[in-house]
């Protein structure tokens, strides 16, 4: 385990760059992580998904899978791939300060 400073806050991250403790997450951190994931700007649509993932992740203790997001967050598969191109499942989990999604679907 290592720590790094994101948006002026020291947080614990794993070797793949995912935050280990979701409680350390802030919205400012999300903005910085999004930049690292080639998303220079987070729109209200992005935030809707991120907030869903935060809520769901904190309740279940794990990052929601892509299918869970599209079936419960009111966002379609197409929209997910448009909002978080090239790997929406991993991207949104990382930006939301959660671990890698564990489910297969």
């Amino acid at each position: 385990m290592t720590t790094r400073v994101i948006a002026n806050k020291t947080v614990a991250v794993n070797d793949e760059g995912f935050m280990i403790n979701p409680a350390e997450w802030t919205k400012e951190i999300a903005v910085e992580l999004a930049k690292e994931e080639s998303l220079p700007e987070l729109t209200p649509e992005h935030w809707k998904v991120i907030e869903f993932c935060r809520k769901d992740g904190l309740t279940s203790g794990k990052a929601p899978t892509l299918r869970r997001i599209t079936s419960t967050a009111g966002v379609t598969t197409k929209e997910m791939f448009a909002l978080f191109p090239k790997g929406p499942a991993k991207k949104v989990a990382r930006i939301s300060g959660l671990g890698k999604p564990e489910g297969c679907v």
């Binding site: 899978t65 790997g87 929406p88 991207k91 297969c104």
Partner: peptide, 12 residues
């Protein structure tokens, strides 16, 4: 389907 979906989710 399962592997393809996982691949898409990982940006492949």
């Amino acid at each position: 389907l399962i592997m393809g979906w996982a691949a898409l989710g990982n940006g492949i």
